[in-house]
């Protein structure tokens, strides 16, 4: 997993609420057996017509917007547990998703893949959308160490929460699995003790 410390980037606004993982990556694209290449089909049915031509009104096809930050409406990532959603966002180039609320499984999947699910207050999210609408070159600065997110060079800023364990993992690029593997003995002891 790649480390994440800080990032300053322009923002792709997607104000839709309840964006489910079937929209992020439709099921018919889950047939791959590796983690690569899912970015191509990110938001497939919102992004492309059935004949493969781009839907001009979808934000990813709008040259005005771009960047490594996706700002989305509340309850982002609900629905299916498919980690392919996090892979697709990452593969496309996103490193941060900002929303006022994330679905649980998506949040975990994102964190396990170096994609920061950044939860801000509804008011702050609204400020982000307003700022981007006024000026598409507005940047968002994220400092994970300090847990601070700021709009523009000197715009409003907000402190954000992240589980301390997850923070350490993100900052250092650790996977849970490394940690769990280091606990083998304790796990075996637990199994022994649990045997009736």
């Amino acid at each position: 997993m790649q480390k994440f410390t800080q990032l300053t980037s322009t923002i792709v606004p997607l104000p839709n609420e309840d964006v489910d993982t079937d929209q992020i990556i439709p099921a018919r694209f889950l047939k791959a057996t590796t983690r690569d290449g899912f970015g191509e089909n990110l938001f497939r049915d919102w992004r492309f017509h059935p004949d493969g031509s781009p839907k001009q009104d979808f934000v990813l096809n709008n040259p005005t917007h771009g960047g490594a930050v996706l700002a989305a409406g509340r309850n982002f990532g609900c629905g299916s547990s498919r980690e392919h959603a996090a892979w697709a966002l990452y593969d496309y180039g996103f490193r941060v998703v900002v929303s006022s609320f994330f679905a649980d499984i998506f949040r975990g999947n994102a964190l396990n893949n170096g994609l920061l699910p950044l939860q801000v207050s509804p008011a702050f999210l609204h400020q982000i959308f307003t700022a981007v609408a006024q000026d598409p070159t507005t940047v968002l600065s994220v400092d994970l160490e300090q847990q601070i997110v700021r709009i523009g060079a000197d715009g409003p800023q907000e402190q954000f929460d992240i589980d301390p364990f997850r923070k350490v993992c993100m900052l250092n690029g650790y996977d849970d699995i490394d940690y769990l593997l280091s606990m083998k003995e304790e796990i075996e002891d637990f199994e022994q003790a649990a045997q009736p």
Binding site: S81, R82, E83, H84, A86, D104, I105, G108, N109, N112, N113, D163, F165, D175, D176, I177, Y179, L180, L181, M183, K184, I187, E191
Partner: peptide
């Protein structure tokens, strides 16, 4: 409960998961 593929790997490897209690 449902888990992502990274967690599938964790459970295959260790029969455990890191979880925050809901």
């Amino acid at each position: 409960f449902g888990i992502g593929t990274s967690q599938v790997e964790q459970v295959l490897a260790t029969q455990c998961l890191l979880q925050k209690k809901p």
